[in-house]
Amino acid sequence: MWAVLRSEWIKWRKSPILWLIFVSPALCSLIGLLESDDMSGGNQWDELLHTMGIMHALLLMPLLAGVFSASVCRLEHAGGGWKQLLALPVSRGAVYIGKFVSVMLLLLATQAVFLGALLLVGTIKGYTDPIQWPGLLFSLIGSWLACMPLASLQMGVSVAWASFAAPLAINAIFTLPNIIIANSERFAPYYPWDQPVLVMLSQQLDDGPDAFHLSMTTLCSVISVSFVLFFVVGQMYFRRKPI
């Protein structure tokens, strides 16, 4: 398993996809810097996380999860690489897990850069409120974990489709309605593209659409069940797929 991950790392060590982890934090910092603080009296850092996080988790993270999944499959699709890779003494299951773990690691790195960007913007704006680390880390790690169903879904589509743009098109088609579906407490928790933003902002919003006030247990169980389901189906498909 470790060898699979290391070979993945060698493949994209010098590719531009590593730069993609800076894309969302950079854009969100810009939004954070431009947005004027409202004096509603909440913790300044929470307000900032809300301003920056809504763009990050509602649109950019789901879209980037798709870009990352398509990217880790690109080399294999391009040069007949699947045959080469699968001729090596590794199981197909391990290859699939390795690719999925790579996507999750890229997303984790994005979260880390986002945290850095958040702290930087707050420092530039001269915030004096204490940082509430447990809440902040919960938002960042929670929304990362909430990407897992979505990432495994995208992984399956990316493996199945040789075209780079097709999985992304699917992803975009389902991500854009996020903005409307997030308002619905009945459907939002079951919509994989909405789960990251629901978890990220669950603690920050006192007033907001009801969907953000769901019990964490419901959300967690939906996320874990759908993750296991999508991942197992994707992996089974990959193990049987004729290359």
């Binding site: 590719s15 996809i17 993609l20 950019l60 879209l63 870009v67 780079f164 975009a172």
Partner: peptide, 22 residues
């Protein structure tokens, strides 16, 4: 050749356009 770059530009443009009014 790497379509990840133009598509990321497109993703960013989409998000930026939603803030179009500002």
């Amino acid at each position: 050749a790497n379509q990840a770059i133009p598509l990321t530009v497109g993703v960013l443009g989409t998000v930026v356009s939603m803030f179009g009014m500002t």
